[in-house]
């Protein structure tokens, strides 16, 4: 929440508010299952309330709703899911073989990503893959703890970072 919003966000703010209302409305409809006029009115009211509060908190922008990268984000999460499956199998093997199979190691991994959003996506993806956890996120580098040395080595090849960097173009 440290990012300061620029003034030009106000004209696109309406667009993001509309997107947010649409998403919230869909979630409300899906969760409710009752479609009488009274309940629909309550739903519209609560959506309006939430959007109003979110606008007051100044979190309605391209950072909370990264529509400009939605399709690339889907492709990225598809790739990430494959990584998650692979590393899950590795960590499960380690768990069954016991503590002789692991060699916990922590290291600082350089991170050249510029925008806050892509750095958060990168750190989040590292934490999401079992076997590596982002412990702290500073400017320019991440402190990563890994279950085995190969986890750190894999991050240092920079494949994941490259993919995250391509999201933001």
């Amino acid at each position: 929440m440290t990012t300061k919003k620029s003034v030009k966000a106000t004209d696109s703010g309406l667009r993001y508010s509309l997107y947010l209302s649409l998403v919230l409305g869909l979630i409300w409809l899906g969760n409710s299952g009752h479609y009488s006029p009274l309940l629909l009115a309550f739903g519209a009211l609560s959506v309006f309330l939430v959007v109003w509060i979110a606008r007051r908190m100044r979190v309605v922008d391209g950072e909370s709703q990264p529509f400009h990268m939605s399709f690339r984000l889907l492709a990225y999460y598809g790739w990430l899911f494959r990584k998650i499956v692979e590393s899950n199998i590795k960590v499960a093997g380690c768990a069954w073989r016991g503590r002789s199979a692991i060699s916990p190691v922590s290291a600082r991994v350089p991170c050249a990503l510029q925008s806050d959003l892509s750095r958060v996506i990168y750190a989040n993806s590292i934490t999401l893959t079992p076997g590596t956890v982002t412990v702290s996120l500073d400017k320019g580098e991440l402190l990563v703890h890994a279950l085995t040395e190969s986890g750190i080595a894999e991050l240092q090849t920079g494949e994941m970072e490259g993919r995250v960097a391509r999201l933001d173009q």
Binding site: V85, V91, A95, P104, S106, L128, P130, V133
Partner: peptide
């Protein structure tokens, strides 16, 4: 995978390693 993760939580020697096992139960 759940059981493997729980086994890891019990068997791994230090806190950060246990976190990896816990994240396994939380993901796949």
């Amino acid at each position: 995978f759940m059981i493997s993760g729980a086994l890891g939580i019990l068997r791994f020697p230090d806190f950060y390693s246990r976190m990896h096992a816990a994240s396994m139960t939380d993901t796949l």
